[in-house]
Amino acid sequence: MTYGEKILNYYRSLALPQNLPEGVEVLFPFAEEEVSGILEAFYTKYFSDNGRRTFLIGINPGRFGGGATGIPFTDPIRLLEELGIPNSFDPKQELSSRFIYQMINAIGGPEIFYKNFYFTSVSPLGFVKDGRNLNYYDIPALQQALEAYIVDEMRKQLAFGANPVAFSLGMGKNIEYIKKLNAKYQLFEEIIPLPHPRWVMQYRLKRLDEFIGEYVDKLRPQIKQ
C-alpha cells in the first residue's frame, strides 16, 4: 500500500470528535463527493510511493483552506493554479495557503516538497463558532475535550511513515501544546517551531522573503530525495 493509499483510507474512516463545548461546530469536508475526488487526485499524484515524510503540524484547518478543499493549507485557488486540480469551490484565498505555496515553490515545487513532507494539524478537523474560525486552543474546554482524539488521530498518521523530527507551524500556543503532548505521549524525537504562515502574512508581510527563507533553511535538511 502506498503512502497516498494509507492517507486516503485514513480520511475515509476519520471520525468526528465528541463532547465538544456548546456552540462549537466541526468542519468536515470529507463527506462531500467533490472533496473525495480531490483527495484521490492529490494523494495519488504526490504520494504514490512508500517513502517516509517529515510532518509539518498546523493548528487546525480553516474554513477557506483545508476545511473546504480537504487538503491542508491548500485553498481552492492554489488547488487549481499550483496543483492543477480543477474544482468548483468558491475561489476564496486563505492567507496561510498563499504563504505555503510560495514556500513550496522556493523549495523546488510541489513534487519535491510532497515527496518529503506531509501536512497535518494538531486536530485533523477544523472548528467554527458563530461563523468564525476557531483554534483548538481558543476555548480551554475544547482543548481539554480534544486531547484523547488528537493523540489517537496523530498516532494513526504516524503509522503512514514519519521521520523522528517534526515541525510546528506556530511558535506560540501551538508549539507549546505540541511539546506538552509530546512529553506525555512520545510522538516525535524533536519538534522544531516555525512562524505560523497566517501570522507572517497578516503582521509581517514586508518580511515575507525573510520568513520563506527561514522555512527553506530549516526544512531543506529534511529533503532526502
Rank of each mutant, 00 (worst) to 15 (best):
R12I: 09
L79W: 05
V26D: 02
P193G: 09
G67W: 07
I175N: 06
P164R: 11
N133T: 00
S123W: 05
L205D: 08
P197Q: 01
N163T: 10
L205H: 13
Y137N: 02
P197F: 06
Y46E: 09
P61V: 01
A162G: 09
V122E: 11
T69D: 02
I178F: 05
Y177A: 09
L95H: 00
L8D: 10
S88I: 14
Y3K: 11
A68Y: 01
I107E: 01
T120C: 12
A141I: 10
F28N: 05
Y136N: 04
N116W: 12
N163P: 02
N135F: 12
K45I: 11
V128H: 00
N19M: 12
Q93W: 08
K156L: 12
F117Y: 09
N60R: 06
K129Y: 05
R52W: 08
L205Y: 15
H196I: 04
P197C: 07
Y11H: 10
K179M: 13
F73H: 03
F42E: 08
N135W: 12
L56I: 04
L219S: 06
E190Y: 02
E147Q: 10
Y203K: 14
G4C: 12
I112V: 12
S48E: 07
F160N: 11
V128I: 13
L169E: 06
T69G: 01
Q18T: 13
R98N: 10
R220C: 02
N9A: 13
S36G: 15
F89L: 07
E33I: 05
I223Q: 04
K218T: 06
V200N: 03
P197T: 02
I100L: 06
L158M: 14
I85N: 02
P72C: 05
F89W: 06
Y10K: 02
L142I: 11
Q202L: 10
D75G: 06
G58K: 00
T54M: 13
Q186M: 11
L8K: 12
I223M: 10
R12Y: 13
G84F: 15
Q225F: 14
A106S: 10
M201V: 01
I85W: 03
I212H: 05
K156N: 08
G213P: 08
A159H: 12
G108A: 11
F119W: 04
E214S: 11
F113K: 05
I100C: 04
E82T: 10
A141M: 11
F64C: 02
A183T: 08
F117N: 04
F30L: 11
G66D: 00
A31T: 15
I223G: 07
A68Q: 11
